[in-house]
Design a binder for these strands. Sequence first.
DNA 1: ACCAGCTACCTTTTTATACAAGGTAGTATA
DNA 2: TATACTACCTTGTATAAAAAGGTAGCTGGT
Lengths: 116, 116
Amino acid sequence: MSLEEGINLENTKAQMRKGLLEYCILSVISRQKAYASDILAALKKADLLVVEGTLYPLLSRLKNAGLLNYHWQESKSGPPRKYYELTVSGRNMLKQLDDTWKNLQSSINALLKTRL
Amino acid sequence: MSLEEGINLENTKAQMRKGLLEYCILSVISRQKAYASDILAALKKADLLVVEGTLYPLLSRLKNAGLLNYHWQESKSGPPRKYYELTVSGRNMLKQLDDTWKNLQSSINALLKTRL
DNA sequence: ACCAGCTACCTTTTTATACAAGGTAGTATA
DNA sequence: TATACTACCTTGTATAAAAAGGTAGCTGGT
């Protein structure tokens, strides 16, 4: 049985967020090394809700693309954590995404202005 | 055989654009009724490249969601065209997406600022 | 009166990926 | 030593973009 969601506001909002996920994750990690829960918390704070099932595969893809590295680190209160940090290649990617994001905002806002 | 695209700049840029497609299409149509080629041209002008195979199904979904109507209109130079326009419901959706887009920009830009 | 080319519509197939749900295991604490 | 908690990861499902191909109306040249 299909859920037949179709198009609605929540769905469309979610789509908008999705496209910016990679960019935001790289940005969060660029501040300082971070493990999954750190990233989830930072994104949540910015109203970019993401769940574990989305984040873990995405971190793996970013790692496989050579944009991230990780190292294990023990925790004082629980199992060891995988701390991610940006590679050189990751920093370059982030710089380019900064431009992309700026340009995208300009393009969209220009398109919207033609409505006035 | 898989193409094994993985993560790269072009792919990530494309993702960013995707999430904003519905919003932009509604915005373009809100200016004045438009048919597929009008919409493609407007999006292209804003560097939001989209192909027919993406646009037609999306217009159908927007129509089925009650956000758009269309009427046929003859052309002086070719086959008849399907001109789309926003329904009341479509205008409401667009208003809400305006807010969503503003909020999304604020959230992301706030997140990015913590890097400085 | 035909046919080549253009415009416009739409569908099918493939691929990517977000999310829900569930699974494994290390650590702390009562 | 058992329960709760944290952290990792995987599997299954649904959505949707894009590539490619298909149908048909209309125009203009011969």
